[in-house]
Computed example of a mutant assay.
Amino acid sequence: MSVTPLAPASTAQSTAAFRGRIGRDARSGHYAVPRRYRLHLSPACPDGLRIAVVHSLLGLDDACPVTFLDAIPDCPDGGHTALRPLYEASAHRYKGAAVGPVLSDDWSGRIVSTHAPDITRDLARFDGDRPALYPCGAESETEAVERLCAQGIERAAQEAGTAGTDPDARAAALDTLLETLASLERWLTGREYLIRDQITAADVELWVTLVQLDTVHRHHLDASAVQRIAAHPALWAYARRLAAHPAFGAHLDLDGIARRHHAHCRGLEAAGSAVQILDWAAHTARTR
């Protein structure tokens, strides 16, 4: 298996990228055999939360078991002690951080993939009567939602809440964020889901991004900005509806998200921290 170093992350973690894929038959090498693979993830991490929700929506508890990791890695380099044997078995003399999420192969004791988007898509390859989270013909729409979430919400929110940077740049980032939310508000008015009349991977992507926006990014924005973000009733009603769905709400680890944020974040807390957009705990109570 090839191992390709990733560019250094903002947390100064160093790890290796494993990009194995699960195929649909034995010719693929890694094929979708029930109980062959295992997920290792923390729902407090956005990538881990996406994978956990997709895993539950697909009903893969028996076909692909999950080992849950703590919200805060226990190694100084940002890795998990529990994952180190997998990394060392998969890469000769591996010295980097043993980070999640990981899809491992129980047959070989090695890592298949650490690339969260690939893992999420490959879970849909297990046979069975499962929902079509990546419906045929919706590929471009799903990818457009992923880009919108990554650039128009996630990156814009980070830049808008970065203290010590140019005020004009922060204001422009906030404008980008609000414009993105406004476009989603218009699109979701009168709709239950994003791109189909059922839940798809696009809904998982947007929901996790909104969770991050309210539970992480708002802590670095002023109260006025958070109030403007909250002023999108259709969008946040959509987030609330999905939180009440067992496959979504059951994995929402609010305490873990808070601990992870405080352990990694070095930014300054702003007044928006006191302006909660959704009472996530109340809306997910029925899923417990």
Rank of each mutant, 00 (worst) to 15 (best):
T209Q: 03
R196S: 14
A71W: 11
G137R: 08
D62W: 09
G152A: 08
V211P: 01
A243Q: 06
E139H: 14
P5T: 05
W280C: 05
A157L: 12
L103A: 00
S108N: 05
D62S: 14
G164D: 05
G161I: 12
V211M: 04
T215M: 11
R266D: 00
G249Y: 01
A97G: 01
A17P: 00
L58S: 02
E88W: 00
Q212M: 11
T114K: 07
M1A: 10
P46C: 01
A173T: 06
T165N: 08
W107R: 13
T215K: 08
T114L: 07
E179Y: 07
A239M: 12
H40M: 11
R21I: 01
S10R: 03
I277Q: 04
V66K: 06
A12I: 00
P34N: 06
R218P: 05
R84P: 02
G137P: 10
S273L: 00
S140N: 10
A132E: 15
D214K: 02
D214Q: 12
P167T: 13
P167Q: 10
T176M: 04
C265W: 01
Y87Q: 02
Y31R: 06
P8E: 03
A132G: 02
F68E: 12
L242A: 06
P233G: 13
G96E: 14
T176D: 12
H251R: 05
H283N: 06
D255N: 11
A150C: 06
L49Q: 15
A231H: 13
V112T: 11
S14R: 09
G256I: 02
H80E: 07
Q212F: 07
A52S: 14
V3D: 07
H30P: 03
P43I: 12
Q276R: 15
P233K: 11
G23A: 03
A16E: 11
L123N: 06
G20Y: 00
P5D: 08
A89V: 02
D175A: 15
P85N: 09
R19I: 10
G152Q: 07
G59E: 12
M1G: 09
D74R: 12
D106P: 13
A271V: 01
T165Q: 10
A116D: 12
W236M: 03
G152K: 08
H217K: 10
H92M: 05
V66I: 15
F18T: 05
P73M: 05
H245Y: 11
K95W: 05
L194N: 11
D122S: 04
V66Q: 04
A144E: 10
R50D: 00
P246M: 01
I277E: 04
R266Q: 01
R288C: 11
A132S: 14
R24D: 11
P34W: 10
V102K: 08
P73W: 04
H245L: 13
G48T: 06
D47N: 02
A52F: 05
A263W: 04
I199H: 15
A116V: 07
F18V: 06
A12G: 01
Q227W: 08
A263V: 04
T4M: 08
